[in-house]
């Protein structure tokens, strides 16, 4: 154990789980009710007939909306707010999209490969007009693979925090402090997963998803840069300011 009492671990875990439940954008119950409400054939057709710029803007707005909940999630994590402001900003800037992608598995239905988007569930074909089929299919595959691990809300909460409070970020001012906190979070997560999962490799499989998570974020940045070269005005005028600040 990283020199920490079970009491402290439990406090850290409960604080993170509470923060997650308060800021998860959709409760598990809401998602369950929405799960089988899918976009109609006409609605999907409508998405497919949108211009590339319009659909890119809509996705940027939805991503930014989700990121604001992630910022709120971070603000309620005691250990995160004890970090210096430089590192708080740096961890959020480099990790917020990764947390959104982890959280997205909650809003993904692996039975019909649909994801919640603008109020209803829809498949990959809904995003055809974006012109980013590789990114979209990779995101869907990631969500499906995370769903297959059948994580509980507590496990999603702790894993999200461990992804956010990461030592793999350059320019951290207090890397040791970040590392100690991340270790405690992973230790708490390991403890919970050993209880909940027969498969003793469940945590290893979960951690094994992190490189893909990072790759998705890189691909998102590349697709944004490509899109921006063609439509600089659209990004400049129509994209949410926070999205531009984070990804531009």
């Amino acid at each position: 154990a990283p020199g920490v009492s079970m009491g402290e671990l439990d406090r850290i875990a409960q604080n993170i789980i509470k923060s997650h439940l308060e800021t998860c954008q959709y409760t598990a119950e809401e998602l369950q009710q929405l799960a089988w409400q899918t976009h109609s054939y006409e609605e999907v057709k409508m998405y497919q007939s949108k211009s590339r710029e319009v659909l890119w803007q809509q996705c940027a707005i939805q991503i930014t909306h989700a990121i604001q909940y992630v910022v709120e999630f971070a603000k309620r994590i005691t250990g995160f707010m004890e970090l210096c402001q430089n590192d708080q900003i740096l961890l959020l800037k480099s990790g917020c999209l990764e947390v959104v992608l982890v959280r997205m598995c909650r809003a993904f239905n692996p039975l019909n490969n649909t994801v919640l988007f603008e109020g209803k569930y829809g498949g990959m074909q809904m995003f055809k007009a974006l012109g980013c089929d590789d990114l979209v299919s990779a995101v869907f595959d990631f969500a499906k693979s995370l769903c297959s691990l059948q994580l509980t809300e507590e496990e999603i909460a702790l894993f999200s925090a461990a992804v956010l409070i990461s030592t793999d970020r350059p320019w951290l001012m207090e890397p040791r402090k970040v590392q100690k906190l991340q270790e405690k979070i992973y230790f708490a997560l390991q403890h919970i997963m050993q209880k909940n999962h027969m498969d003793e490799d469940a945590l290893a499989k979960l951690i094994g998803r992190i490189p893909t998570l990072a790759a998705l974020c890189t691909l998102h940045t590349e697709e944004l840069q490509a899109f921006q070269q063609l439509h600089p005005e659209t990004v400049n005028v129509l994209f949410p300011p926070l999205y531009k600040e984070l990804f531009n």
């Binding site: 402001q85 800037k93 926070l242 984070l246």
Partner: peptide, 14 residues
């Protein structure tokens, strides 16, 4: 730099 993120972190929890 990161004016918006900085302000979001400063604001009282919404």
């Amino acid at each position: 730099k990161h004016k918006i993120l900085h302000r979001l972190l400063q604001n009282s929890t919404s």
